[in-house]
Design a protein around this nucleic acid. Structure first.
Length: 268
DNA sequence: GTCCATGTTCTTTA
DNA sequence: CTAAAGAACATGGA
C-alpha cells in the first residue's frame, strides 16, 4: 500500500491530531513488530507528548517531547489510524496508543511486513536512504545511473537511490517519461533522465493531490481511501488500451515485481 | 488447491 | 570481490 503519496497522506491527516498531545496506555499486542525486540516501549512513550510527525521516504517518524523518536513503516498492508477508543479493534491490530478525548492511534498490519522501529535520540534522516523523490536533481540521477547497469524500473524501486517510490509510481513515472522499463540505466541519455525526474515529480504530486492510491488496503489516518487509482495510466491495466495511443498495455515481471507499460509509447 | 499483492532484506548467482 | 537476480518473509483475496 504505502508509497510516498500514501505515507505523506497519512502524515498529513495524522499530524494535527497528534501534535502536542500526550500519549498513554501503550499496548503492544504483537511484540514481534517492535525493533529492537524486547524494548520497553510503554516506559519510553507513556506520558510523553508528540513534538512532531514527519515523513522520510516511506517511514512515518514520530518525535517525542524528550527528544527521542521512533518510526513506523507500513510494509505492504499496514494501516495507521485514529479511532474512537470504544470502537472494536480490527484483526491484526499490533499496537494501540491512547490519546486524549477517548481516541487512540492504532497500527494494524495483516502481513506484518511493517513494524515499529525505535530510533532514540540519535536520528539520522539520511541513513540508508537516497534523496527524497520530490527533491530529485537531474544531475544526481544522471551521475548515479551511469555507474550501474540494471533495468531502470528496478533502479527506481531502490530506496538507497531514491526514497519514496514503489511499484505503482515507478510504472506511472516511466510511462509519463516515455521510457521502456527494461532500459538499462547506463544507456539512458541525460535528456531522458531529466524527463524522468520531471515525470516522477509530476506523478507523485498529482497522486498527493488525490490523497494516494487505494488498491485494497490503503486508508489515511481518518480511514478514508485515496482516489488516484482512478487516474493510473498503466498500473494494473494490462490488456487495456493506452490512454495516448490505444495500444493494449503489456505486463512483465522485473525484479519479481509486476511491471506495466505501453509497448508503443515506451520503446527501448 | 493456485497465483498474486502498494515492501524490504537476506541469499545465491554471475 | 561486487553487482544483480532470486528467494523469503505472512496473510488474504481472486
Amino acid at each position: 500500500m504505502p508509497e510516498l503519496p500514501e505515507v505523506q497522506t497519512i502524515v498529513t491527516t495524522l499530524r494535527p491530531s497528534l501534535l502536542g498531545r500526550p500519549l498513554s496506555n501503550v499496548r503492544l499486542l504483537r511484540p514481534d513488530i517492535l525493533h529492537p525486540s524486547g524494548l520497553e516501549l510503554p516506559a519510553k512513550v507513556n506520558g510523553r507528548r508528540v513534538a512532531d510527525v514527519t515523513r522520510r521516504g516511506k517511514k512515518i517518524i514520530i518525535q517525542l517531547d524528550d527528544g527521542e523518536s521512533f518510526f513506523i513503516h507500513l510494509g505492504m498492508s499496514g494501516r495507521l489510524t485514529l479511532e474512537a477508543s470504544a470502537s472494536q479493534l480490527p484483526l491484526h491490530t499490533h499496537l494501540v496508543i491512547s490519546l486524549p478525548e477517548n481516541r487512540e492511534l492504532r497500527f494494524t498490519d495483516p502481513r506484518r511486513f511493517g513494524g515499529v522501529w525505535w530510533i532514540g535520540d540519535d536520528y539520522h534522516p539520511d541513513s540508508g536512504l537516497g534523496p527524497e523523490a520530490l527533491d530529485l536533481i537531474p544531475a544526481y540521477l544522471i551521475e548515479r545511473l551511469a555507474r550501474t547497469k540494471r533495468a531502470i524500473k528496478t533502479a527506481l524501486l531502490d530506496q538507497k537511490l531514491i526514497a519514496g517510490i514503489g511499484n505503482i509510481y515507478a510504472d506511472e513515472a516511466l510511462f509519463a517519461a516515455g521510457i521502456h522499463p527494461t532500459t538499462l540505466t547506463h544507456r539512458l541519455k541525460p535528456d531522458q533522465i531529466t524527463a524522468l525526474v520531471r515525470a516522477i515529480k509530476k506523478v507523485l504530486t498529482r497522486a498527493l493531490r488525490h490523497k494516494g492510491s487505494t488498491l485494497r488496503d490503503f486508508r489515511n489516518a481518518d480511514g478514508q481511501p485515496g482516489g488516484f487509482q482512478k487516474l493510473h495510466r498503466v498500473y494494473d491495466r494490462e490488456g487495456k488500451p493506452c490512454h495516448n495511443c490505444k495500444t493494449p498495455l503489456l505486463r512483465l515481471v522485473l525484479g519479481g515485481r509486476s511491471t506495466h507499460f505501453c509497448p508503443s509509447c515506451q520503446k527501448r
